[in-house]
Design a protein around this nucleic acid. Sequence first.
DNA 1: CTTGCGCGAGAACCATCGTTCTCGTAGGGT
DNA 2: ACCCTACGAGAACGATGGTTCTCGCGCAAG
Lengths: 189, 189
Amino acid sequence: MLEEETARERVLDAAEGLYYQRGVQAVGMDAVRNASGVSLKRLYRLYPSKGDLVEAYLRRRDAQLLQRLVGYVDTVDGTPQDRVLAVFDWLYSWFSESDYRGCAFINSYGELGAASPAVAEVARKHKAAFRRRVADLVAAAGLPASLADQLSLLVEGAITTAAISRTPEPARTARDAAQALIKVSRTAA
Amino acid sequence: MLEEETARERVLDAAEGLYYQRGVQAVGMDAVRNASGVSLKRLYRLYPSKGDLVEAYLRRRDAQLLQRLVGYVDTVDGTPQDRVLAVFDWLYSWFSESDYRGCAFINSYGELGAASPAVAEVARKHKAAFRRRVADLVAAAGLPASLADQLSLLVEGAITTAAISRTPEPARTARDAAQALIKVSRTAA
DNA sequence: CTTGCGCGAGAACCATCGTTCTCGTAGGGT
DNA sequence: ACCCTACGAGAACGATGGTTCTCGCGCAAG
């Protein structure tokens, strides 16, 4: 039999693939069972309800996504300003993944946020955490704090535009805009 | 008995309120029946399936939203540049509506886009049409075309950020960023 | 007045899904 | 060899939802 932690991982891997690709409501527990190979009984012992599983999925994805961003930016050597712009290069590689379907948090929020305060909360927290990462990079580059919010909007806009238009190009557009905003804020400050 | 067109309107009004507020999958045909006062039989004669109703809802909202934007911008007198920035003032008033829940197209796309090419298509078209409006304003102000895409990203980002964070502030942030981008593009060109 | 058509109200039907239950069995301790 | 526990496979159950059907009624034509 599987270790508990291994089973948890398998379930979350399966749930992540299915929920992200097809949407949460479109995926039944049976599909998670089949994709993970973990029996329903066990699944319900690990996550007492679908809501719990959905929350766990979002929480893990939250951590993973921020880690991936930080991991990418950390490999960039260059000026602190380059590292700010690297956020948009990371976006480009993300958008280029063949199964890219936008931001799991925005999608889940639109689907469930109205009925589930827990989902709304996780989405809010994820966006706040993301914004904080950007703010850290902006601060490290000695740029004004107000820039962080502006760049975050560009990131958010690129994420949804890339999803709907099915091209990674918005990452480039956002990068150009970011560069321009940085330039302005340097001369203005 | 109701005129066919009146019934259509009532159904779409009901569907719009419910779908936008709670999400499409969370709203049954019964809820649309109750909210509209149009019998199920008639409802199915007007829209042969729920999918058809959803499409009609999105199409009408597409037209309405663009009309509202254009209507607002047209009341602004000032320089062509002011009219570009007026887009963000319009966003602010939209975000301030008490029942604001983000962009119906992004929400529907996240919920149904994977399973319904029709919904994905309507969302894509809406975003393209919106971008075109922005591009018209940018062109009228004699600004470079590349700015239109950048401003559209700001709009998109503000829409989702306002929804998740539940404040209209992102409209202001986006406006500031837009102003900066306009300034840069004037000196660069 | 009568006949029959078209309507609305709501029951009915069938599929799906979240969740729980049954059952057969594998495997470890004695 | 014999239990006893714990498990997985899948049936079962109850709710919900999309779609269709039944029934009774109002009303227009004859």
